[in-house]
Protein backbone atom coordinates (compact mmCIF):
# COMPACT_ATOMS: atom_id res chain seq x y z
CA UNK A 1 0.00 0.00 0.00
CA UNK A 2 2.06 2.88 -1.24
CA UNK A 3 1.06 6.46 -0.65
CA UNK A 4 1.22 8.60 -3.75
CA UNK A 5 2.37 11.69 -1.95
CA UNK A 6 4.83 10.81 0.76
CA UNK A 7 5.75 13.73 2.89
CA UNK A 8 9.02 13.73 4.69
CA UNK A 9 9.86 15.49 7.89
CA UNK A 10 7.16 17.85 9.04
CA UNK A 11 7.45 21.39 10.25
CA UNK A 12 5.39 24.35 11.37
CA UNK A 13 5.76 25.38 7.75
CA UNK A 14 3.21 22.76 6.73
CA UNK A 15 0.86 25.37 5.32
CA UNK A 16 3.53 26.52 2.94
CA UNK A 17 4.30 23.05 1.67
CA UNK A 18 0.74 21.87 1.14
CA UNK A 19 -2.33 23.36 -0.32
CA UNK A 20 -4.92 23.94 2.39
CA UNK A 21 -8.41 22.55 1.88
CA UNK A 22 -9.67 24.09 5.08
CA UNK A 23 -8.11 26.90 7.01
CA UNK A 24 -9.25 28.16 10.36
CA UNK A 25 -8.20 31.69 11.21
CA UNK A 26 -8.26 33.23 14.70
CA UNK A 27 -11.39 31.40 15.82
CA UNK A 28 -12.74 32.36 19.23
CA UNK A 29 -15.88 30.82 20.67
CA UNK A 30 -17.45 31.91 23.94
CA UNK A 31 -20.44 30.41 25.69
CA UNK A 32 -21.48 33.25 27.95
CA UNK A 33 -18.45 33.76 30.16
CA UNK A 34 -16.90 30.43 29.29
CA UNK A 35 -14.17 30.56 26.69
CA UNK A 36 -14.39 27.35 24.63
CA UNK A 37 -11.84 28.33 21.96
CA UNK A 38 -9.41 31.24 22.00
CA UNK A 39 -7.84 32.67 18.87
CA UNK A 40 -7.25 29.33 17.20
CA UNK A 41 -5.67 29.02 13.76
CA UNK A 42 -5.07 25.78 11.92
CA UNK A 43 -4.50 24.53 8.36
CA UNK A 44 -5.86 21.27 7.00
CA UNK A 45 -3.92 19.98 3.93
CA UNK A 46 -5.93 18.82 0.93
CA UNK A 47 -6.28 15.10 0.36
CA UNK A 48 -4.99 14.22 3.82
CA UNK A 49 -6.43 13.18 7.16
CA UNK A 50 -5.93 15.56 10.05
CA UNK A 51 -6.84 14.50 13.56
CA UNK A 52 -7.91 16.86 16.31
CA UNK A 53 -6.72 15.13 19.45
CA UNK A 54 -7.03 16.25 23.03
CA UNK A 55 -8.51 15.64 26.46
CA UNK A 56 -12.21 16.24 26.99
CA UNK A 57 -13.09 19.91 27.25
CA UNK A 58 -10.36 21.01 24.84
CA UNK A 59 -12.92 22.22 22.28
CA UNK A 60 -12.13 19.76 19.50
CA UNK A 61 -15.78 18.97 18.74
CA UNK A 62 -16.67 22.67 19.02
CA UNK A 63 -14.02 23.47 16.41
CA UNK A 64 -15.30 20.72 14.12
CA UNK A 65 -18.88 21.98 14.40
CA UNK A 66 -17.75 25.53 13.66
CA UNK A 67 -16.02 24.27 10.51
CA UNK A 68 -19.21 22.39 9.64
CA UNK A 69 -21.20 25.62 9.99
CA UNK A 70 -23.33 24.12 12.77
CA UNK A 71 -21.98 26.55 15.36
CA UNK A 72 -21.22 30.20 14.86
CA UNK A 73 -17.81 31.39 16.06
CA UNK A 74 -17.74 34.47 18.28
CA UNK A 75 -14.98 35.81 16.06
CA UNK A 76 -12.62 34.54 13.35
CA UNK A 77 -13.19 32.91 10.00
CA UNK A 78 -13.25 29.48 8.39
CA UNK A 79 -12.22 29.08 4.76
CA UNK A 80 -13.04 25.98 2.75
CA UNK A 81 -11.40 25.75 -0.68
CA UNK A 82 -10.35 29.39 -0.34
CA UNK A 83 -13.87 30.69 0.29
CA UNK A 84 -15.13 31.88 3.65
CA UNK A 85 -18.02 29.82 5.02
CA UNK A 86 -20.51 30.52 7.81
CA UNK A 87 -23.22 27.92 7.14
CA UNK A 88 -23.28 24.24 6.23
CA UNK A 89 -22.49 23.79 2.54
CA UNK A 90 -22.25 21.14 -0.18
CA UNK A 91 -18.46 21.15 0.17
CA UNK A 92 -18.57 19.48 3.61
CA UNK A 93 -20.24 16.33 4.97
CA UNK A 94 -20.49 15.32 8.62
CA UNK A 95 -20.21 11.93 10.32
CA UNK A 96 -21.78 11.98 13.77
CA UNK A 97 -20.56 10.39 16.98
CA UNK A 98 -24.06 9.01 17.74
CA UNK A 99 -24.65 8.19 14.04
CA UNK A 100 -27.75 10.49 13.84
CA UNK A 101 -29.66 8.01 11.70
CA UNK A 102 -33.38 8.60 11.34
CA UNK A 103 -34.94 5.58 13.09
CA UNK A 104 -38.09 5.64 10.95
CA UNK A 105 -36.22 5.54 7.66
CA UNK A 106 -34.63 2.52 5.97
CA UNK A 107 -30.89 2.34 5.36
CA UNK A 108 -31.23 3.45 1.75
CA UNK A 109 -33.39 6.44 2.67
CA UNK A 110 -30.95 7.41 5.40
CA UNK A 111 -28.02 7.21 2.98
CA UNK A 112 -29.93 9.17 0.34
CA UNK A 113 -31.00 11.90 2.79
CA UNK A 114 -28.27 14.36 1.81
CA UNK A 115 -28.95 13.83 -1.90
CA UNK A 116 -32.67 14.25 -1.32
CA UNK A 117 -32.06 17.60 0.38
CA UNK A 118 -30.00 18.63 -2.64
CA UNK A 119 -32.96 17.93 -4.91
CA UNK A 120 -31.53 14.86 -6.66
CA UNK A 121 -34.29 12.85 -8.37
CA UNK A 122 -35.48 9.71 -6.57
CA UNK A 123 -34.19 7.10 -9.02
CA UNK A 124 -30.81 8.75 -9.33
CA UNK A 125 -30.26 9.19 -5.61
CA UNK A 126 -31.23 5.59 -4.95
CA UNK A 127 -28.70 4.40 -7.48
CA UNK A 128 -26.00 6.51 -5.85
CA UNK A 129 -27.03 5.42 -2.36
CA UNK A 130 -26.95 1.77 -3.39
CA UNK A 131 -23.42 2.15 -4.70
CA UNK A 132 -22.17 3.64 -1.43
CA UNK A 133 -24.05 1.12 0.68
CA UNK A 134 -22.19 -1.55 -1.26
CA UNK A 135 -18.89 0.32 -0.85
CA UNK A 136 -19.18 0.37 2.94
CA UNK A 137 -20.02 -3.34 2.92
CA UNK A 138 -23.74 -3.22 3.70
CA UNK A 139 -25.09 -4.66 0.44
CA UNK A 140 -28.32 -6.52 1.20
CA UNK A 141 -29.25 -4.21 4.09
CA UNK A 142 -30.76 -1.45 1.93
CA UNK A 143 -34.24 -1.94 3.34
CA UNK A 144 -33.25 -2.70 6.92
CA UNK A 145 -34.01 -0.16 9.68
CA UNK A 146 -31.36 1.30 11.99
CA UNK A 147 -32.65 -0.58 15.06
CA UNK A 148 -32.01 -3.85 13.22
CA UNK A 149 -28.31 -3.04 12.77
CA UNK A 150 -25.35 -3.27 15.13
CA UNK A 151 -23.52 -0.12 16.24
CA UNK A 152 -20.74 -0.71 13.73
CA UNK A 153 -23.19 -1.21 10.88
CA UNK A 154 -25.04 1.96 11.85
CA UNK A 155 -21.86 4.00 11.60
CA UNK A 156 -21.23 2.46 8.18
CA UNK A 157 -24.61 3.88 7.17
CA UNK A 158 -23.57 7.26 8.56
CA UNK A 159 -20.35 7.03 6.56
CA UNK A 160 -22.18 6.06 3.37
CA UNK A 161 -24.51 9.04 3.82
CA UNK A 162 -21.53 11.40 4.14
CA UNK A 163 -19.74 9.87 1.14
CA UNK A 164 -22.80 9.86 -1.11
CA UNK A 165 -23.03 13.66 -1.30
CA UNK A 166 -19.49 13.71 -2.71
CA UNK A 167 -18.27 16.61 -0.56
CA UNK A 168 -14.60 17.62 -0.70
CA UNK A 169 -14.25 17.63 3.05
CA UNK A 170 -15.38 14.92 5.45
CA UNK A 171 -15.86 16.01 9.06
CA UNK A 172 -15.83 13.06 11.47
CA UNK A 173 -16.76 13.64 15.11
CA UNK A 174 -15.39 10.73 17.16
CA UNK A 175 -17.01 8.40 14.62
CA UNK A 176 -15.71 5.16 16.12
CA UNK A 177 -16.14 5.92 19.82
CA UNK A 178 -19.51 4.15 20.09
CA UNK A 179 -18.44 0.87 18.46
CA UNK A 180 -16.59 -2.07 19.97
CA UNK A 181 -12.82 -2.47 19.83
CA UNK A 182 -12.61 -5.06 17.02
CA UNK A 183 -15.02 -3.12 14.83
CA UNK A 184 -13.05 0.04 15.51
CA UNK A 185 -9.82 -1.55 14.26
CA UNK A 186 -11.55 -2.64 11.06
CA UNK A 187 -12.94 0.88 10.63
CA UNK A 188 -9.49 2.38 11.07
CA UNK A 189 -8.04 0.14 8.36
CA UNK A 190 -10.95 0.96 6.06
CA UNK A 191 -10.48 4.64 6.76
CA UNK A 192 -6.83 4.49 5.64
CA UNK A 193 -7.92 2.90 2.37
CA UNK A 194 -10.61 5.54 1.98
CA UNK A 195 -8.17 8.43 2.48
CA UNK A 196 -5.96 6.90 -0.16
CA UNK A 197 -8.61 6.08 -2.74
CA UNK A 198 -10.92 9.07 -2.45
CA UNK A 199 -9.49 12.45 -3.23
CA UNK A 200 -11.00 14.02 -0.13
CA UNK A 201 -9.83 15.92 2.91
CA UNK A 202 -10.64 14.30 6.26
CA UNK A 203 -11.01 16.09 9.59
CA UNK A 204 -11.13 13.55 12.35
CA UNK A 205 -11.89 14.24 16.02
CA UNK A 206 -10.81 11.58 18.47
CA UNK A 207 -9.77 11.19 22.09
CA UNK A 208 -7.78 8.02 21.41
CA UNK A 209 -4.05 8.64 21.01
CA UNK A 210 -3.43 5.29 19.27
CA UNK A 211 -6.29 5.90 16.85
CA UNK A 212 -5.05 9.38 15.97
CA UNK A 213 -1.50 8.23 15.31
CA UNK A 214 -2.69 5.18 13.37
CA UNK A 215 -4.95 6.99 10.90
CA UNK A 216 -3.52 10.51 10.59
CA UNK A 217 -1.27 12.28 8.15
CA UNK A 218 -1.25 15.19 10.56
CA UNK A 219 -2.21 15.34 14.23
CA UNK A 220 -3.20 18.61 15.89
CA UNK A 221 -2.94 18.35 19.65
CA UNK A 222 -5.38 20.61 21.43
CA UNK A 223 -5.00 21.55 25.07
CA UNK A 224 -7.70 23.00 27.29
CA UNK A 225 -8.00 26.08 29.49
CA UNK A 226 -7.48 28.11 27.42
CA UNK A 227 -8.09 25.95 24.41
CA UNK A 228 -5.14 26.10 22.02
CA UNK A 229 -3.18 24.07 19.47
CA UNK A 230 -0.13 22.98 21.40
CA UNK A 231 1.60 20.94 18.73
CA UNK A 232 1.26 19.61 15.20
CA UNK A 233 2.77 16.21 14.53
CA UNK A 234 3.29 14.72 11.08
CA UNK A 235 4.24 11.05 11.19
CA UNK A 236 6.53 10.36 8.24
CA UNK A 237 7.92 6.87 8.02
CA UNK A 238 5.29 4.20 8.74
CA UNK A 239 2.41 5.23 6.50
CA UNK A 240 3.74 3.24 3.52
CA UNK A 241 4.64 0.07 5.41
CA UNK A 242 1.19 -1.53 5.28
CA UNK A 243 -1.68 -1.49 7.75
CA UNK A 244 -0.42 -4.58 9.58
CA UNK A 245 2.96 -3.11 10.41
CA UNK A 246 2.00 0.33 11.67
CA UNK A 247 1.35 -0.68 15.26
CA UNK A 248 4.83 -2.11 15.75
CA UNK A 249 6.70 0.62 13.93
CA UNK A 250 9.15 2.39 16.27
CA UNK A 251 8.06 5.82 15.10
CA UNK A 252 4.40 4.96 15.77
CA UNK A 253 5.28 3.84 19.29
CA UNK A 254 7.44 6.89 19.93
CA UNK A 255 4.75 9.31 18.81
CA UNK A 256 2.13 7.60 20.97
CA UNK A 257 4.44 7.86 23.98
CA UNK A 258 5.34 11.44 23.22
CA UNK A 259 1.70 12.52 22.96
CA UNK A 260 0.80 10.73 26.17
CA UNK A 261 3.66 12.47 27.93
CA UNK A 262 2.33 15.86 26.90
CA UNK A 263 -1.34 15.06 27.67
CA UNK A 264 -0.78 13.20 30.94
CA UNK A 265 -0.89 16.29 33.12
CA UNK A 266 -4.29 17.31 31.72
CA UNK A 267 -6.12 14.17 32.84
CA UNK A 268 -8.07 14.67 36.03
Amino acid sequence: MAMSQIKEESAPAASAEFESAVSVKNITKNYGDVEALRDMSLEFPRGQLTSLLGPSGCGKTTLLKIIAGLLEPTSGTVEVGGKEVTDPGPDRAFVFQDFALLPWASVIRNVAFGLEMRGVAASEREAIAEKYIKDVGLAGFENAYPHELSGGMRQRVGLARALSVDADVLLMDEPFSAVDEQTRRKFQEDLLALVQNENKTFLFVTHSIEEAVYVSDQIAILLPRPSRVSEIIRPSSFRNKGVDNIRRDPEYLDIVDEIWASLRSYVE
Binding site: G69, L70, G89, P90, A93, F94, F96, F113, M117, R161
Partner: peptide, 20 residues
Protein backbone atom coordinates in the same frame (compact mmCIF):
# COMPACT_ATOMS: atom_id res chain seq x y z
CA UNK B 1 -27.97 15.48 16.60
CA UNK B 2 -30.92 14.78 14.25
CA UNK B 3 -31.37 18.51 13.71
CA UNK B 4 -27.62 19.04 13.28
CA UNK B 5 -27.57 16.18 10.80
CA UNK B 6 -30.36 17.86 8.82
CA UNK B 7 -28.56 21.20 8.78
CA UNK B 8 -25.19 19.75 7.85
CA UNK B 9 -26.81 17.94 4.91
CA UNK B 10 -28.39 21.24 3.81
CA UNK B 11 -32.01 20.60 4.76
CA UNK B 12 -34.18 23.73 4.77
CA UNK B 13 -36.01 24.72 7.98
CA UNK B 14 -39.23 23.36 6.48
CA UNK B 15 -37.52 20.07 5.56
CA UNK B 16 -36.13 19.77 9.09
CA UNK B 17 -39.62 20.27 10.51
CA UNK B 18 -41.38 17.91 8.10
CA UNK B 19 -38.70 15.29 7.58
CA UNK B 20 -37.04 15.21 10.99
Amino acid sequence: SYKEMGRSFLASDLSILVRI
